[in-house]
Amino acid sequence: MDWINAIIQGILLGGLYALFAAGLSLIFGVMRLVNIAHGDLIVLAAFLGLTITTALGVSPLIALLLVVPVMAAIGYVLQRGILNQTLGEDILPPLLVTFGLSVIIQNGLLEIYSADPQKMSAGALETASIALPGDLNIGVLPLMMFVVAVAVIAGLQWIFYHSSLGRAFRAVSDKQDIAQLMGLNKAHVFGLAMALSLAVVGIAGVFLGIRTSFDPSIGPGRLIFGFEAVIIGGLGNIWGTLIGGIILGVSQNIGAQINPGWQLLAGHIAFLFVLAVRPRGLFPRID
């Protein structure tokens, strides 16, 4: 029973990891940018949620209504103000600039919030659970987060393949020059992609802050989880991030079940295993 429980909890956790991964995958797909500060932005969103919940005395789920647009705005400004200047043939500038950004965000958060672990409380929802046959309990909150994660991934998939914004994303991703000939301002399209990515980061950050305690230093770890989910699922595949997230979450929980010290290690090993046998991930997009 413990094992089944571990697997179910792992699947639910995978939803959160998919949220970490989706934003990362999106901007890589549109502009080949790997944002090293992605994890720190998730933590920033969590702290933003914390500030809003304490200042306004609202539930973190209500705070989402503010966190998401604020993060999106940060994403747009960041992209147009700094990151667009780094894009080009050379992969080094975006990598190093986002690395610097990661250092700045971490230490900025430390300065403001100190290194103490924080947590957001979602009230009664947190203890509510659904009893399943066979002594299994599924927390309402983790389940809800998983459902939201699936909905977000579905929404991103829809935007990418069925909206005019997604068409612009794909066109710019295919051929930047020619896309400009269609009247698309590349800088603006990239800004929108980063805004969308950070909107998802906003949701991910608040969920993270409700689920576990967080402090300014945990960003890089979240980046790595997101990255592993992207690679496991297959590059360029939005649904793949969900599968990757679930595989990662389940591996971690199984590892923890064997030995508490192996939780993270088991996730990394699952990732390295996929990399060894299927270097392009389980479901790479064929194009």
Binding site: I36, I224, E228, I231, G261, L272, L275
Partner: peptide, 24 residues
């Protein structure tokens, strides 16, 4: 193992390796 990753993903892959070493 990690030479299978390209460019920036290679960078994060090296980080994963470091994490594996640390945890091990």
């Amino acid at each position: 193992l990690i030479f299978r990753l390209r460019g920036a993903y290679f960078a994060i892959g090296t980080w994963v390796i470091a994490e594996v070493f640390r945890l091990s």
